[in-house]
């Protein structure tokens, strides 16, 4: 565990807490893509199946349980409790366009052709693109609430910090995992446009409105 990885995990944790607080406090999930949230729940449940096969550390297990349970809670809030506030008219990204290629890629390019490993690989590939329905929704409506933009920033920052973690691990531990690295870079690149808007607008106290 190095400082980049810890900061990445904390950023990830913060993103999810911000999202849940936003939904809970405003009693609304307006502006949040339910499709992205379903993809994230799929990411965590397929990646963390090793909770039952490998024990790494208490930290690791607690975080995994947190990510699985909060992603399920988010879906419950969006599709059951605050269903009336869910903006499904703007949440129209076809997730089959992501799920099908990611499944094929997971079956073809993996470290080991075993059920758990293929599911892990699927989840890594899926995570890299899972935010697309959310970014599509923001571009479709042309804006995002400030709290939603904080959520997106923390969620994007998490994988960017993991890239520094991988550089560190490569130099100091001789460890690298190409699948995670390539997918992590793709994931971070997808946020670049948003990062730019976040830094130039939200940090200066303006709302996140896309240029017309």
């Amino acid at each position: 565990m190095n400082v980049f990885r810890l900061a990445g995990d904390l950023s990830h944790l913060l993103a999810i807490i911000i999202l849940l607080l936003k939904i809970w406090k405003t009693r609304s999930c307006a502006g949040i893509s339910g499709r992205s949230q379903i993809l994230f729940a799929l990411v965590y449940t397929t990646r963390y199946l090793d909770l039952f096969t490998n024990f790494i550390s208490l930290y690791n297990s607690v975080m995994k349980v947190f990510f699985i349970s909060t992603s399920c809670a988010t879906i419950y809030l969006m599709y059951v409790k605050f269903k009336a506030t869910y903006d499904h008219n703007h949440d129209t990204f076809r997730i089959g366009f992501l799920l099908i290629p990611v499944t094929i890629l997971g079956l073809l390019i993996n470290h080991d052709f075993t059920p758990l490993e293929v599911l892990w690989t699927f989840s890594i590939y899926l995570e890299s693109v899972a935010i697309l329905p959310q970014l599509f929704m923001v571009s479709k409506t042309g804006d995002a609430e400030t709290i939603t933009s904080h959520y997106l920033f923390c969620l994007g920052l998490y994988r960017a910090l993991y890239i520094f973690n991988w550089i560190y691990r490569y130099y100091f531990e001789g460890f690298y995992d190409l699948i995670a690295i390539v997918a992590g870079v793709v994931q971070t690149v997808l946020y670049c446009d948003f990062f730019y808007l976040y830094v130039t607008r939200v940090i200066k106290g303006k709302a996140l409105k896309l240029p017309a």
Partner: peptide, 10 residues
């Protein structure tokens, strides 16, 4: 080395 099936990251 490349670790295949043991993933210690989240």
């Amino acid at each position: 080395d490349l670790i295949g099936t043991f993933h210690d990251e989240l």
